[in-house]
């Protein structure tokens, strides 16, 4: 089994974790341990970006994937997000694209935006 070394991205501590099979060391919390095992097997990332917004007080809607998506599918997810056009109003947490690029993960709004001219 190959040994993998990684920097944990779960919290600002940034622990250096070594993973070998199911064995992990260097983590400071269970979330870090679980993340490291996942990272060794198949890395996942949350995608944050913006999508164009029509009729809103602002022109871009900030969005993110509700949960992590496979890292090797990040560009695919991004391309799909970039093709979207969302209509205002939008509530924070609202799904703007379900099952983003077939990952099973929703893309959600991270900001509430009113329609232009309305409060």
């Amino acid at each position: 089994m190959m040994k993998k070394t990684m920097t944990c991205i779960i919290c600002p501590l940034g622990c250096r974790i070594e993973v070998e099979g199911e064995r992990a060391q260097g983590y400071s919390c269970p979330r870090g341990r679980d993340w490291a095992r996942q990272e060794a097997a198949a890395p996942m990332r949350i995608l944050t970006t913006t999508v164009p917004l029509r009729g809103g007080e602002i022109v871009l809607l900030p969005v993110r994937t509700r949960g992590p998506v496979p890292k090797d599918r990040l560009w695919e997810c991004l391309a799909r997000a970039n093709s979207l056009l969302v209509e205002a109003p939008v509530r924070v947490g609202q799904v703007v694209c379900p099952d983003l690029a077939g990952t099973g993960v929703d893309l959600i709004a991270t900001r509430t935006v009113a329609e232009i001219g309305k409060d």
């Binding site: 920097t7 944990c8 991205i9 501590l13 990332r45």
Partner: peptide, 12 residues
Amino acid sequence: GLARNIAQCLED
């Protein structure tokens, strides 16, 4: 910067 940002913003 934070170590995790080096990992997920640069190394990735």
